[in-house]
Design a protein around this nucleic acid. Sequence first.
DNA 1: CTTCTCCATGGAAACGATTCCATCATGGTT
DNA 2: AACCATGATGGAATCGTTTCCATGGAGAAG
Lengths: 353, 353
Amino acid sequence: MEKRATIKDVAEAAGVGVATVSRVLSGGSASSHTRERVLAVAAQLDYRPSALGRNLRQRRTGGMGLLVPDLTDTFYGQLAEGVLACARSAGEPVMLGSTGGDPEQEAELIGMLLEQSVDRLIAVPSGDAETWAPAIRAGMTVVFADRLPAQPDHEEDPAAAAAHDLLLLDGLSPAPQSRPMDVPAVVADDRAGIRTAVRYLRGLGHKRIAFLGGPGQDRRVAAFGEAVGAPVDEELVVFGTGSRDSAYAAASGLFQSRPDLSAVVAGGNVLGEAAVLAARELDLRVPRDVSLVMYDDVPWAELCSPPLTVIAQPGRDMGYRAAELVLRAGTRRPRSVVLPTELIIRGSCGPRR
Amino acid sequence: MEKRATIKDVAEAAGVGVATVSRVLSGGSASSHTRERVLAVAAQLDYRPSALGRNLRQRRTGGMGLLVPDLTDTFYGQLAEGVLACARSAGEPVMLGSTGGDPEQEAELIGMLLEQSVDRLIAVPSGDAETWAPAIRAGMTVVFADRLPAQPDHEEDPAAAAAHDLLLLDGLSPAPQSRPMDVPAVVADDRAGIRTAVRYLRGLGHKRIAFLGGPGQDRRVAAFGEAVGAPVDEELVVFGTGSRDSAYAAASGLFQSRPDLSAVVAGGNVLGEAAVLAARELDLRVPRDVSLVMYDDVPWAELCSPPLTVIAQPGRDMGYRAAELVLRAGTRRPRSVVLPTELIIRGSCGPRR
DNA sequence: CTTCTCCATGGAAACGATTCCATCATGGTT
DNA sequence: AACCATGATGGAATCGTTTCCATGGAGAAG
């Protein structure tokens, strides 16, 4: 356990002041003679500036925070890989937290990041605007990914709020000042994704299409309502809470209470997994008895039998773009990004029986 | 963007010295009167000590680093969740890096963590002992998870080194000083896991059993050799490099070059996935034409058709235990942990045709 | 030759915590 | 009454960096 060389050691060994060393190493002005000398000595001593001193001086920890609900959800794994790839190429560290979809844990993790003076954060939010207020107030640069926080003020009508979000992300902000948080986001084009899927199912003759949603999927639910057209049969829209168990319970309940449905759109890969399992348990054949479209293209979608038809969204890109946004913030005013989805037709949808 | 209160603000507002505030907050001695007063003022100012100052003073960043090869591999997602759960309950931050299984990137990430003065690290190593030397030398507390780094000194006979590792992890260290790195590890009982799987396949009548391995799986390969007994048919042991493509290529090549094999053990879930895909592509029916056992129990193993028989290893526990070890280090001399595996029989194995 | 400008340079102050050490008060013992 | 032990307390040093500012020298312009 040898102690590392400090800037002072380098300065002494090179016969210059610490200020000069700092300048040379961070690209300030210096004569080519001293520059060479300092660089040589630094290399010789294997000097690497300590982030500790720098962080304290600049009153901020470099790098970025990343908050996701659950890393065993393959989609969030992809998203995290994207963030890490961007961070790595920028040489920035990433502080990771997993919220379990719980706003309270999310708030706690935000608090910890604040304590660490991490001032850049990428999050798949679980809490509402109130949960996020402390971070914003503290001056954190936040970028949301995959979804937006719920609006507590709209709580009497979440559907309206989600529709609002859809508009907002189209760049058609209907009432700019009505959304207090001005936080950029990187999300998939849920409206188009869902619409394409619903149209596809309609084309196969399906009339009773259900939506199996998870927490934070208000935008997808709204898009679904829009795609199937009013009036939406409320019973055909059910929700899990985020855990695999509750997703299974929701799927199973749906199949049992509405044997008349002929197609299901699952709002995420965990929900899709639950739907496959529940269908099998109830002896429903896919796609003969029920057609299934799942959000998220994950490697195992192809392994199912039949292989699952999915709405693919670019998880890795989403993470990468979010990381870019959060790093560029300050240089450029970050603008929200909507990434395209793609319907990948495999074998889990068939004509209505 | 309001600036946070510092310890100085609290001290002034409470009419005491900064030293006293620090003591009160970190559990030092203080009269109950001042203690109350300081706590009241701190709460009132919403004071939270900045990790920056503390880190610099203690010359170490709190929390821990976590290095995994790939977060889209569900097993590493589980492992990461375990680490995060432990860290969260300890209130410690986690710095994450994804190495892509590349020793060079791993070395780079280690360098970055060193720069951040992170002195506790959990890693699924990709590089060899040489890659890890800098971290050890710098006095980092390292705990390996899932596997151990390769030994470059044994390079003439990796099998012997892996067998050595197997012994070592049994607690039967054959020559204690022969392993220079004394780094604790949390791994699955690969030997038992593989042996159980091979016995199971033997019991079904299989004679030609292949092993589909990935990088860093020397211990599993050695265990496989041990389980099938010498002489091992070298052609029946093939490797992918870690990417899904190369895993697929390895699996496909194996099936084509050795149509006589009747069973495959895949050393990880990505390899299992590749085996299923390759078998399907070559019109090999599972389990009629070929039986398959996969390492890692992942949620989608049940979704396959047939559902996959797996060697389950407790990924989440592995991460949790590793985090515990790395946090307790210093208090207790950490000892390696071997976690049990379980053969979960589903439908991907059948009698030899 | 003088003066002005510009650049390289180094000393020193910050940043916010912990911790050493000296001081002081209190209370008990001889 | 003098002395000592104990415990609370605050000032100041410290960690390693960046950055402000003053200084000094060299070159250009007058």
